[in-house]
């Protein structure tokens, strides 16, 4: 039972992070390898908000997440917009550069020491015993519920809202979308903002649950195979990919070797790349377009 709880929590974490990769890739065909760092920045914003104001925890979390949305938009406006028209790989390498820059900046601005935003917010994190005897911390439960809410919200947003439909159109065919009067730069900015927002929510919840230092970016990188396993342009895929990777990881760590933790997502990634490079739910034509 405890194993199942662990799997669900890890899967929810991966899924919440992975949807950020999918959002940006689906709309602009850019693989954002700075996602882990951006999510870390979101968590550090909470540290600042918590220490600078006496807001109640929920408001502080909301403010930090809203700020991170702004960070995402700024990244697009000041950096990614300049790379329009360049090869996809240049954009990926630029996000790698951005990630390195952010890691350095985070240490410069917030120091490398471990932070505990939950303590400074006065947030308790008591374990809850579930019906099968499994235990889950309150914040992990919050993470699982948030993931559900975020995915529900994203599905509804992309399916029904005006901006969501524009985003899908821009992803399917940027040229036609632009001809129909869709502001591509605006769409991309929204995608970057949303992606950073969801990533930061994940980062904030993880930081509240287990503290925060610069290793958080590594968690972000581990979630990236999840997005690719499911298919880089499919939200449903990343949900399923998260479940697969989390199950494999938890079971293998439990029964084989704890050192495997860092490598399992990449082993699965390798298998998927060899057998079905476009992922479980991705569209096949992606491969030729890149």
């Amino acid at each position: 039972m405890q194993l199942a709880v662990n799997i669900v929590v890890l899967a929810a974490t991966y899924a919440l992070i992975a949807c950020g990769y999918v959002l940006i890739y689906r709309v602009s065909r850019v693989l954002n390898l700075a996602h882990g760092e951006l999510m870390m920045v979101g968590a550090y914003l909470l540290v600042t908000v918590a220490s600078a104001s006496a807001l109640p925890p929920l408001l502080a979390v909301g403010l930090a997440a809203a700020l991170s949305l702004g960070v995402g938009v700024l990244v697009h406006l000041f950096l990614m917009r300049r790379l329009t028209g360049q090869p996809a790989l240049a954009a990926v390498l630029t996000t790698i550069g951005l990630g390195i820059l952010l890691r350095g900046l985070v240490v410069l601005l917030w120091s490398a020491e471990q932070q505990h935003p939950a303590q400074s917010l006065g947030l308790a994190n008591p374990p809850i015993t579930l019906f099968g005897g499994g235990r889950i911390s309150t914040l992990s439960l919050a993470l699982v519920l948030t993931t559900g809410a975020v995915y529900g919200g994203l599905f509804a947003f992309l399916r029904f809202s005006r901006w969501g439909i524009r985003m899908r159109a821009a992803g399917q065919n940027p040229l036609l979308a632009a001809q129909r009067g869709i502001n591509l730069n605006g769409i991309y900015a929204v995608a970057w903002g949303l992606s950073t927002f969801t990533g930061s929510v994940a980062g904030i919840l993880i930081a509240l649950d287990s503290g925060l230092d610069t290793t958080m970016a590594t968690i972000g990188l581990k979630a990236f195979p999840v997005a690719l396993v499911g298919g880089l342009d499919s939200l449903l895929g990343s949900l399923l990919g998260a479940l697969i990777v989390a199950t494999a990881e938890v079971v293998l760590i439990q029964y084989v070797d704890p050192l495997l933790s860092d490598v399992v997502p990449f082993l699965i990634l390798m298998a998927v790349l060899l057998a079905r490079p476009w992922g479980l739910f991705g569209s096949r034509e992606e491969l030729d377009r890149v």
Partner: peptide, 17 residues
């Protein structure tokens, strides 16, 4: 160390862009 990191990222971005 952190300044090095940040500056390296900046230079990389500069050349790419």
């Amino acid at each position: 160390f952190a300044s090095n990191y940040a500056a390296f990222g900046l230079v990389m971005i500069f050349f790419l862009v």
